[in-house]
Write a protein that binds this DNA or RNA. Sequence first.
RNA 1: GGCGGCGUAGCUCAGUGGUAGAGCAGGGGAAUCAUAAUCCCUUGGUCGGUGGUUCAAAUCCGCCCGCCGCUACCA
Length: 515
Amino acid sequence: MIPPRIRPRFYITTPIYYVNGAPHIGHAYSSIAADVIARFKRLDGFEVFFLTGTDEHGQKIEKAAQAAGLEPQEFVDRNANAFRAMARAINLSNDDFIRTTEMRHKSGCIALWQKLETAGVVYLGHYEGWYATRDEAFYAEDELVLGPDGIKRSPYSAPVEWVREPSFFFKLSAFQDRLLALYDQNPEFIQPASSRNEIIAFVRAGLRDISISRTSFSWGVPVPGSPDHVMYVWVDALANYITAMGYPDMEAPRMAFWPANLHLVGKEITRFHAVYWPAMLMAAGLPLPCRVFANGWWTVEGEKMSKSLDNALPVEPLIAEFGLDPLRYFLMREMPFGNDGDFSRRALINRLNDELANDLGNLAQRILAFIAKNAGGALPPHGPMTEADFLLLSHARSLPDKVRDAIDRMALHEALDQIWKLVRSANAYIDHQAPWALRKADPLRMAAVLRILCDALLVIGVLLQPFMPTTMAKLLDLLAVPPTARDLAALESALTDGSRLPAPSGLFPRFTEAA
RNA sequence: GGCGGCGUAGCUCAGUGGUAGAGCAGGGGAAUCAUAAUCCCUUGGUCGGUGGUUCAAAUCCGCCCGCCGCUACCA
């Protein structure tokens, strides 16, 4: 065991979710991906801090609360609970859950604001533009439609008026060169490459200052010294990553985790994380996060998730029908991480049956049931190694490095692909060695074959824990692996000759469509 | 319009200069320990089109076609 003090730290975040709507598969996806990485890093000896939470301010919330006849705080309390419930339902291993309406966050925001003011990057100006009261939105000149009556209207035909309100601005324009240098010197700062290209093009095209306060609503963090202003989303929401660490107390124990190693975000908010956020941190004199990774979007049965189609997929019914771990597996396996992909019931069932039930579940079952029936229900010892034994074993031993490498490259789907290569090799090995034919002829060789299979199963079970924690805990129980010997460092010593194995039971039942 | 990405077997994708690959789907066979689960073999592609560079191009360059993303205050 490495002493905790010298373990490397790893800080990973999910986006904070806007509590205006209900959680759906897209939220679950980002969270599960972060969870897989967090769990893998723990397995690999890192001291991990994993943060998730909710974004709870803004005009939309204020209006929605009003429409629901609730105080904004009551409204967000209720909706934030739905996101907490989702986190529990998907077995998230987060170390904290921050809400932007918490005092610790608000006081941290105010401190950050003051720091930015002191740095001279905040000034009072006017935010102005074409505003449609009916749409509650600002529009750019080229979005407006000129009606036959000569009146300018919004794309949704609402009348617009030129409005001008006082607003504080952040001098984003002053950071263009430093941001470009950051991207240039840290090619991994924004991933995947498509997002990186877009961000660099955006910044090269020139940056305008951004409005960071509002006077048109009040549900937000008050701007210090200007009680008629509340902070607009940029400062408020992005700051969560440091306020949860104890900012502005730089001596807070959690501050040792800053800067974050990885901000996992949905691709729609990449710019805020890859442009605004590092600029603010530079201004505040804080270290910058190491990496921003934008994950893609799911379509559902080929259709884009949208309010008008009302097809946003909630996760609880899927968990109830298919089980959590199969769902987690599917989400991580079905589409290359960073791409978009389609969530279809058919594809989920196929992967559940073909890969989980047939390939892996059946592999574990045939090995463990065979040991229970023919090897006295105890972990068999090794025998003399054959060429085939050596091949399977070296495949298994090389797997942790391959998986680590894939996860470091954010190729979560590839990590699973690598693990499945071993699953298939193990199935081929058991067929070729045919322990059932050795039962009477050569019981010692039979035992040796079973042991090699257990060695492979151990590696598979350990490496799959981040993806399917509950089911892999069960598999490792079936191999009599002590709970303290389930990380990568313990792989060589996790199995003990002769340990009593519990009665085997299936890991992944086949899914059959109810008639 | 500008910038960027993609277009490879029926499907999802890997492959960035040297005789086209994986998984699934399809076809044939073997085995029977196992959740009828597995294993072996196999059908299938002029790598969007076209012109060029090269001894050699899916891989580099030009043009064309198609799809997608970004082009700031919409979480």
